[in-house]
């Protein structure tokens, strides 16, 4: 019935011969807001990075809307973990958001007035317009995360991958971010989020993938987000009291 946005077949990724992801088959339907959950070292970030071609798998393939990633780059936006960059880098909030437009520009061509306009709109959307000239180290953790989100929004993609966007942000920012993600889903976009806080899964997401080196389960939150899958994923007898 629905189109498949991301299809992962038999994906295996290893660091120094130790498999981090083992024979993953995964289909992400278009238009879902999906959480990837699993314990530390389960390969959540690795899965996203492999889909985006940042890591090279030792086996398996990934397609985006039925085609290889290389030909679909412009349909995909990525929000890396906040800690993956140096926030002391000499640049401003606006400039970081502008980086989101580089993909559509390609090599050599420089960003112009149109790109700046798009970046300003994205900044406004995440409520950071008044911080546009601020050096990025002068922003709080939550503000930095919003800048990253704005940078992804500016890419105007069909699929958004986010690696722990809620890590180290305050409650206000968390609400602001999740509202934007829900808006994206409403606009028909597919959003895939590496997520840690199991309590908020039913409230924030409509689709979930349990991952622990192997794929445990994937499907609608209301059908598969249960104690059985949580126990299988986290290895201990898991009882969550989730208010639905």
């Amino acid at each position: 019935m629905e189109k498949i946005a991301v299809k992962v077949d038999d994906l295996t990724v290893a660091y120094n011969y130790k498999p981090v992801l083992w024979d993953i088959d995964l289909q992400i339907p278009e238009g879902v807001l999906m959480a990837i959950v699993g314990p530390n070292g389960a390969g959540k970030s690795t899965l996203i990075k492999s889909i985006l071609g940042i890591l090279k798998p030792i086996a398996g393939s990934v397609t985006i809307f039925g085609k290889p990633y290389d030909s679909q780059r412009k349909k995909v936006a990525y929000v890396p973990q906040k800690g993956s960059v140096d926030w002391d880098f000499p640049t401003t909030a606006l400039d970081v958001v502008m980086m989101g437009t580089y993909g559509s520009l390609g090599w050599i061509k420089r960003p112009g007035a149109n790109e700046k306009k798009r970046a300003l709109e994205a900044l406004e959307k995440v409520g950071m317009l008044s911080f546009k000239s601020r050096q990025i180290s002068q922003l709080s953790g939550g503000q930095q995360q919003r800048i990253f989100l704005a940078r992804a929004l500016v890419q105007d993609a069909s699929i958004y991958f986010m690696d722990e966007p809620f890590q180290g942000v305050d409650a206000t920012t968390e609400v602001a971010i999740i509202n934007i993600l829900k808006e994206l889903r409403k606009a028909g976009k597919t959003v895939v989020v590496v997520h840690h806080d199991l309590q908020t899964v039913p409230e924030y997401f409509d689709w979930v993938t349990f991952l622990n080196v192997k794929k445990i389960a994937t499907g609608p939150v209301k059908d598969i987000f249960n104690d059985e899958n949580l126990t299988k994923t986290y290895g201990i007898n898991y009882k969550v009291s989730i208010q639905k």
Partner: peptide, 22 residues
């Protein structure tokens, strides 16, 4: 002049640079 944008991006965020095709 030709690759300022690419150098800046890959210096600041190599992961994003890869995913954007630089």
């Amino acid at each position: 002049l030709a690759f300022f944008k690419e150098l800046k991006l890959s210096t600041f965020d190599a992961g994003l640079a890869t995913s954007l095709g630089f």
